[in-house]
Simulated scan of single mutants.
Amino acid sequence: MEKGSNVYTPRFCTVTISEVFADRQAACEAGYTEPTHYHKDGWGIAGRARNTTDMRFAAYRE
């Protein structure tokens, strides 16, 4: 998984990865707390809302 990848998630459909983290805790500390319910090949994806119309997504190793 790398920055710029497009991934289909159960909650948000297709998202673009903005950041990649070593683990879930690092992603949470950076503000990525919204679950996407994506868990595949040792990766998870979480989101964060920048404002009411803009979400960013990060991948993390599980």
Rank of each mutant, 00 (worst) to 15 (best):
A58F: 11
M55S: 14
D23R: 04
S18Y: 03
R50V: 04
K40H: 13
G44N: 06
N6C: 14
N6K: 15
N51Y: 00
I17N: 01
T33R: 09
D41V: 01
H39Q: 11
A27G: 04
Y38C: 00
E62K: 03
F12V: 09
K3S: 07
A22K: 14
D23A: 05
E2Y: 14
W43V: 12
T16Q: 12
M55C: 15
E19P: 11
R11L: 13
R56I: 09
G4A: 13
R11I: 12
G44H: 03
K3H: 04
M55L: 09
T33I: 08
D54V: 02
S18I: 12
T9L: 01
R48P: 13
R11M: 13
G42E: 06
G31E: 00
G47V: 04
S18C: 13
M1G: 04
K3I: 13
G44Q: 03
R24P: 12
K40D: 02
Q25P: 05
K3E: 08
D54I: 00
W43S: 07
Y38L: 06
T36A: 00
F57A: 02
E2F: 13
Y8K: 08
F12E: 03
H37C: 12
Q25K: 15
F12W: 05
R61E: 14
E19I: 14
T33H: 06
Y8M: 12
F21V: 12
C28L: 12
N51K: 04
V20W: 04
E62L: 06
G47L: 06
R56T: 12
A26D: 05
P10D: 00
M55Q: 14
R24S: 15
A30Q: 09
N6F: 15
G31V: 10
V7P: 01
A49F: 11
D23W: 02
A58D: 08
T9D: 03
G31S: 05
Y8Q: 10
C13Q: 14
F21I: 12
E34W: 02
G31I: 12
D23S: 05
R61Q: 12
K40E: 05
S18F: 06
C13T: 10
R61G: 07
E62S: 08
R56Y: 09
Y60H: 15
H39K: 11
A58G: 05
V7R: 09
R48S: 13
A59I: 03
S5V: 14
A46V: 07
D23C: 14
A30E: 11
P10I: 00
R61L: 15
H37R: 09
D54C: 07
R11W: 09
F57R: 08
G42D: 05
A27W: 02
D41C: 01
R11C: 07
H39F: 03
C13V: 06
D23E: 01
V15F: 00
A46E: 11
G4C: 10
T52V: 08
R50Y: 08
E34I: 06
T33V: 10
T9C: 00
Y8L: 15
G31F: 01
E29R: 04
